[in-house]
């Protein structure tokens, strides 16, 4: 997801406009000049200024220098992902997707099955073989449940597969 400065700058500026506008609509505290709207308006104005400066490309020279310094240490940055096919780049959505799956599924399926499914899918996506991914999913999900549920007393839902502890 490498975007041009013009796009991210405009986004920041738009956010600033929304923050200032949203802030200005907040009800004031009776008898007080300064209320909950002061700070969001101030931030909004700051964001608008920064957004415009970024879109205009100001400050980019600093970034190039920092990148050059890092390139000495880490070698040229990996731009493989921008050239890689779309399906490869879409893999970036898998981790947040799995977290949302957790939110939706954990109360119905229970912690251990949900975690096992997450680990299995993520592990296969990272290129693990089935004979690694399957035992990993089974063992790690039970181990995490044991640590968090038993030792740390986090109320993880039991769901379909209650654990003996």
């Amino acid at each position: 997801m490498h975007l041009s400065d013009r796009i991210t700058g405009s986004f920041v500026a738009t956010l600033g406009v929304l923050a200032a506008y949203g802030g200005s609509r907040l009800p004031p505290v009776p008898g007080q000049d300064i209320g909950p709207s002061a700070f969001p308006i101030l931030i909004g104005v700051g964001l608008i200024l920064c957004g415009l400066l970024i879109a205009a490309g100001i400050g980019h020279s600093f970034e190039e220098e920092a990148e050059a310094d890092l390139a000495v240490v880490e070698g040229p940055p990996e731009y493989a992902s921008t050239k890689a096919p779309l399906t490869y780049r879409l893999r970036a959505l898998l981790p947040p997707g799995l977290l949302l799956f957790y939110v939706v599924a954990v109360d119905r399926l229970g912690f251990v099955p949900t975690a096992a499914i997450m680990i299995f899918i993520a592990s296969v996506a990272f290129g693990a073989k089935l004979r690694v991914a399957l035992p990993l999913a089974a063992l790690a999900s039970v181990a995490i449940h044991l640590i968090f549920y038993k030792l740390l007393r986090v109320p993880l839902p039991a769901g379909l597969l209650p654990m003996p502890w």
Partner: peptide
Amino acid sequence: ATVMPVILV
């Protein structure tokens, strides 16, 4: 492939 999935959970 074994570390990252566990971290995610």
